[in-house]
Design a protein around this nucleic acid. Structure first.
Lengths: 227, 227, 227, 227
DNA sequence: GATGAATGAGGATTCATTCAT
DNA sequence: TATGAATGAATCCTCATTCAT
C-alpha cells in the first residue's frame, strides 16, 4: 500500500455533501440541492466533452445555465466539483448494484464472478460516461488531484473487498496489488470498449473478462465451479 | 545518450538548397539542432511534470532557457513538439533494441518472449518517463491529438508484428484487437510500475508479465517450450 | 450626447430571462451598459488614433481603464466592437437626422439636396471621427471585415434611397452603381476635409458638393429648380 | 498646400536606391540589385495579399525566399521597402507613359485629356495591384507613414502638373486643392473598379471619367474642343 | 442566494529586429 | 553577403476566482 489512498476512504456514514461547506451547518435547502444536482450534471457533461483538465468552471456554469458566482456558492473550485461528482457516482453505483460489487458466495465460479462484475461496471460506465473521465483523471502523471485519488481509493477498496473473498489466503499487500492490477486492466479495457461499438465493443468486453479471469485463475484456490 | 546526435549526422539528407557557395556550409544548423534537442528535453521534463494537457509552450521555453519566440522557430505548436518527441523516442527505442521488439523465433517460449519484451519496454520507459505522458495523451476523451495517435499507431504496429508471429493463425482483426488489449495492459501496468519503487515495483513488473502471459497463453498454438 | 443612452432606455426590449423574482430587477445591467458605452468610446478613440487594423483589444481596454478580461465579457473580439460601434453610429445618425438622409421632395433642387446631405454627413462625421475609420475599414484589399461590410451596406442603402427619388427612371443596377460612386466621392472628400481646417476645410466641403452635383446633374431629369 | 508633401518630392535626378544606405557609397553590385528586386517583388506580393499594415517583414523575406537577415541588409524596415517600392513604381510609370502623364496640348479636349489619363492610370494600376495598396496606405487616419506620404506627394505633383496646364489661371492653392480632389476621386474610383469585373468594371471606369470631366469642365476656360 | 461584472495573470503565437556564424 | 537563430514585447484571448449589487 505504498502510496495510494493516503487519505483513506471517506467515512461512508456521514452525508458527503456536508464536507464542502462544513463550517456553516445550514439546513440543506431544497433549492440548493437542486442547484447542486444541476451543476454536477453540467460538470459531468463538460468533463465528458472537454476532459477534466480542459474543463473550465465558467463552462460548467454556462452549461448549467447559472452564473459563475452561483457555482462558487456551492463549490470552492473545480476539484470540489469533481470530488462531489465522484462520490455521487459511487453512491449511485452502490444503490444500483448493492453494497457488494459481487456477492462472491463460494459457489460462484471465478468466471461468473468476474463476468458479473465486469458487466455491471461496464453497464454503469456506459451509462455514466463521466466516470471514465474521472477515473482517468487529469493528464498529470502521478494522479495528483484529490478528486481522482479519492475516487480511485474508493474503487480500489471495492475491488479489494471482492478479491478478499476470492483470495482468502493472500496477504493484504498482495490483495492490494492485485486490486490495482485488476482495476488497471479494467480501466484500460474500458477505454477500448468505449472506443468501439457494436460487435467490436462486445468483443472487447469479452477480452477484458478473459484477461481478468486468466490473470486471477491461478491465484484463486480450489473454488467450487473452478473454470 | 541524453541528447542524441548533436553533430553525429552533419547533413541528414534533407535538401538544403545551397545556391552557389558550397564551401563554408553547415554549422548554422548545428546550433539549431542543439536547440531542438534542448527544447525536446525541456518538453519531456514539462510533460512529465505537468502532463501534456497542462504543459504550456511558454513553460517549455522557460525550462529550456530560451524565449518563447525561439521555440516557435522550430515548432509550430505544442502538438508538433509532442510528435517530434514521440518520433525521436521511437527511433531511439529501435536503435537500442533493434527492429524487432522481440526476436520471436519459434523456439522462444511465450514466457520468455513476453518477459523480454516487457523488460525492454519497462527499461526504456523507466529511462524515458515522457513516454508515459505521450502514450496516455491528453485528458480529452475521444479527441486525442495527432501526436498520440501517431505514437499509439506505431506502438500498436510493433505489438502487432510481435503478435503476428506468436499467433500465426489469427485473423488480422483478432491480431489488432489483441494488440490493443496487450498495449492497454502494458500501459496500465506501466502506470503502476512508475508509481512504485523498489521491491513493489519489481512485483508489479512481474504482475504485468503474468497478466500478459496468461492472457496470451491460450491463444498461442503449440509453441516449443510452452509454459 | 457623447455617451448615448446611458439609462435612457432601461429595458431595450431584449428578452432578459428573469426567472421568478421580478421585483428587484435591472441595475445589474446598468453597470454593464455603462461599461459597453465606455468601451465603445475607448474603441472609437483607439480606432481614430491608430486605425482599425492596428488597434488592439488590449489598447482599447487600457484606454477604457479596464482589464482585457472585462472587454471580452462584452465583446468576443475586435470585429464585434467595430460592428456594435457602427450600428450605434448609424442609429444615432438616424435619430439625429431622421429616417431620410434627405427629404427629397421634388421641389428641392439637386443643389440643395446634395448640399443638405453633404452638410449633414459632414457634420456627423466631423463630430464622430470614428465613422471615417470604420468606413475605410482595414488595410486589407478585398477581404474587408463584416463590420465594414455592414456599415458600408447600410450607407449604400441610404444613398440608394436618396438617389432613387432623384433618378426615378434609372435601373436598380444604375442606382446602385451611382450610389457606390457617390459614396466613394464622399469618402474621398471626407478624408480631405478631415485633413484640413478652417477655410481650407470649408473649401473642400464645397468641392465635394460640386463634384457630386456636377456628377449627378446630367442624370436627374427635369426637376424643379434645376441648377 | 496645408500639410501634404512636407518633404517635397524626392530629387528626381539622383538614383533613388542610394538613399537607404547612403553612408557607404559602395559600388552597386549586380547581385545586390537582384536581391533588391526580388525583395520588392515579394513585398508587392505580400502587400497585395495581406495589406500593408498586416504585412510582416518575415513574410516578405519568406516570400522572397531569403532569410530575414538578408532583408535587413537592404532595407532598414518595412517602411523603407514600401518607399522604395513606391519610387520604383513611379519610375516605371514614367518610363512607360513618358514624363507627362498628359501632354495636354491645348488642342486636346478635356474629355480626351481625362480619358487618356484615367485609362493610363487604370491600366497601370491594374497591372500593378500593389500600387493600390501603397496609395491607400495603412489604415491609419492621417496617412502617417512616410512611404505613402511620399508616393502621394509624387502623384499629387503629377496631377498638379497636368492641371496646371488645364487651369492656367488658377492659383497654386486652387490647383493643389483640385489635384487632391481629383486624386481622391481617382482613388475612390479605382477601388470600385478593382472590385468589379467585366462590363461592370468598364462601367465604373466610365463613371470615374464622367465624374472628373464634369467636375473639371466648369473650371477649364475656353479650351478648344470643349466638351 | 443569485447575478454578472471585474480581474489580472497566463495561455499560444507573431513580429520587427539584431547577432553570431 | 547570407543565413537562420534569438529575442522579448505585444498580440488576442481564457480562466479561476472574487465582489458589488
Amino acid at each position: 500500500m505504498s502510496d495510494t489512498s493516503e487519505k483513506g476512504r471517506p467515512e461512508k456514514g456521514q452525508p458527503e455533501k456536508e464536507r464542502a461547506e462544513k463550517e456553516q451547518p445550514r439546513r440543506r435547502q431544497a433549492r440548493g440541492e437542486r442547484r447542486i444536482t444541476q451543476l454536477l450534471e453540467a460538470a459531468a457533461q463538460v468533463f465528458c466533452t472537454t476532459g477534466y483538465t480542459a474543463a473550465s468552471t465558467n463552462a460548467i456554469a454556462r452549461e448549467a445555465g447559472v452564473s459563475p458566482g452561483t457555482l462558487y456558492q456551492f463549490f470552492p473550485n473545480k476539484e470540489a466539483i469533481a470530488i462531489e461528482l465522484g462520490e455521487r457516482l459511487v453512491h449511485e453505483m452502490r444503490d444500483t448494484y448493492g453494497e457488494a460489487l459481487a456477492p462472491v458466495d463460494p459457489a460462484t465460479s471465478l468466471k461468473d464472478a468476474v463476468g458479473t462484475a465486469v458487466d455491471r461496471f461496464m453497464a454503469f460506465n456506459t451509462e455514466h460516461p463521466v466516470f471514465f473521465a474521472l477515473m482517468h483523471g487529469p493528464d498529470m502523471p502521478g494522479g495528483i488531484t484529490e478528486a481522482h485519488d479519492q475516487l480511485h481509493a474508493t474503487l480500489i477498496g471495492r475491488v479489494e473487498d471482492l478479491l478478499a473473498s476470492l483470495l482468502p489466503e493472500a496477504s493484504a499487500a498482495d490483495v492490494t496489488r492485485t486490486a490495482h492490477v485488476c482495476l488497471g486492466i479494467y480501466k484500460a479495457g474500458l477505454e477500448l470498449v468505449l472506443a468501439h461499438e457494436g460487435a467490436e465493443r462486445t468483443a472487447y468486453i469479452q477480452e477484458v473478462k478473459d484477461v481478468l479471469i486468466r490473470y486471477l485463475d491461478p491465484m484463486v484456490g480450489d473454488r467450487l465451479g473452478r473454470t
